[in-house]
Write a protein that binds this DNA or RNA. Structure first.
Lengths: 239, 239
DNA sequence: CGTTGTTTTGACACTAGTCAATGGGTGTGG
DNA sequence: CCACACCCATTGACTAGTGTCAAAACAACG
């Protein structure tokens, strides 16, 4: 069995500026990290929580990646979003303290758990923490609006290009290469996320390769021409 | 010119329980309503704010209805959501105090404005208010997730049925009939919202009429069989 | 080295989009 | 009060883009 990981420290965590501690004083961060519960690492397919479970806390992604999904009446999984390191999971459950979606791990991953009651106590004491939580909630709404825009009215080509650019940007913010990364999910999951079939994802990847815009080797993605990729989504860009 | 409307009172507003005052003590509501600025009523097509404008405050819908949208590089409007009475507009702008979408009125409508600086001051003083704002933010994320689910993977028929059921539910919560209501937007706007063409909306309405599930007369919608409408979306329902 | 799951490719079907014409409702001006 | 114009909604004919199904290629794993 995996031993319980060592106690997390937000002070030394390189994700701190993307996560809840952003904007906090050192002594405030020290108070915050007291309430963080470490969880054993999860592996591919492990469920972090299921839809309709009671929400006892939020989760911050420490490493790896997660997938938000629901299962419909016919047993088909519908992927609704992805979580990368530094992002908070469970924000939609603060309303009634019940999870509205299921979340599982796309690879070996770890999270910090923030128990809700203690987080609420702390927010009352540390205005900066409350402020940062509000900002993160608002940012999540803004990100959702972008996703709604993407799904609303676009061709498969634009959806796939936007998906790649979204990952490029998010990996870039994490300090990784924004032109070379590994997909942590199968085609089927990308397809479900974009409202397409996995065959369409495959065909779009092939088409982008033939135009020399990207190179694909299984889950390994190399973006050869970021500008051309950007140009694909240009006509749908809002102002 | 329309005279400035009389000072709003949250204490007598029948929407208070759907809106920010929910869960507050009477004296807290009295403090809240001091900061509310009334705005002149807006009419069909009037812009509440434009994308990229600085966000100086949130808006609560008092009457009528609004539409969230963006305009793409080709000048085409993309509708992203609707706001009915009791709902808060601008929640996605708390992050960087800049609006990410434009909002206009679908009919003669009015809003209460909540200036951001004064709202923040008040949240710091009234924990219940902060708590309610957090709940509303979380609820908005949850609603967004439902919309993402709807757009992801569904047929025109399911989308249209879901749209009607969504309106039915929201009007019901407002105390109006949930089987008989007027659409405040043209087919084109519904189409854009659902990621369909206006012709498809028309055809789906016609099909539902032929099955006697609804009756449509211009913007007047009568739901004759709520169960059958619900049955249409059943196979895509998540659990 | 065989088994299994994933990805790719091809053939075909079907849903929804586009374009165009028609119909109906509303408002304005003669 | 009627005629006209305009906008919105509906309907039909056709098309294009994706989905579906099936088979083959490929990679990962035990």
């Amino acid at each position: 069995m995996t031993p319980c990981p060592p106690k997390t420290s937000c002070l030394t965590c390189r994700l701190a500026d993307l996560c809840l501690p952003f904007g906090l004083q050192i002594n405030e961060i020290e108070t915050l990290e007291i309430i963080i519960k470490n969880k054993r690492p999860l592996h591919l397919g492990d469920i972090l929580f299921n839809k309709n479970e009671q929400c006892l806390g939020l989760f911050a992604v420490k490493s790896g990646s997660f997938r938000r999904f629901v299962i419909n009446a016919e047993g088909v999984e519908q992927t609704l979003g992805f979580y990368l390191p530094g992002e908070l999971i469970g924000l939609d459950a603060l309303f009634d303290e019940r999870f509205n979606c299921s979340v599982d791990a796309l690879e070996t991953s770890s999270v910090c758990e923030l128990p809700l009651t203690r987080l609420n106590e702390l927010c009352a004491k540390i205005p900066n923490l409350q402020y940062q939580l509000t900002r993160i909630l608002s940012k999540e709404i803004s990100t959702n609006h972008e996703q709604i825009f993407l799904l609303s009215n676009n061709s498969a080509k634009i959806k796939v290009a936007t998906f790649l650019l979204m990952l490029s940007k998010r990996y870039g913010l994490l300090g990784y290469s924004h032109t070379h990364f590994n997909l942590s999910m199968p085609r089927q999951t990308i397809a479900s996320f974009l409202g397409l079939s996995n065959e369409t994802i495959s065909r779009q990847f092939t088409a982008l390769c033939k135009e020399n815009i990207i190179s694909v080797n299984q889950r390994d993605i190399q973006i050869n021409d970021l500008d051309l990729l950007q140009a694909i989504i240009e006509p749908c860009h809002s102002h």
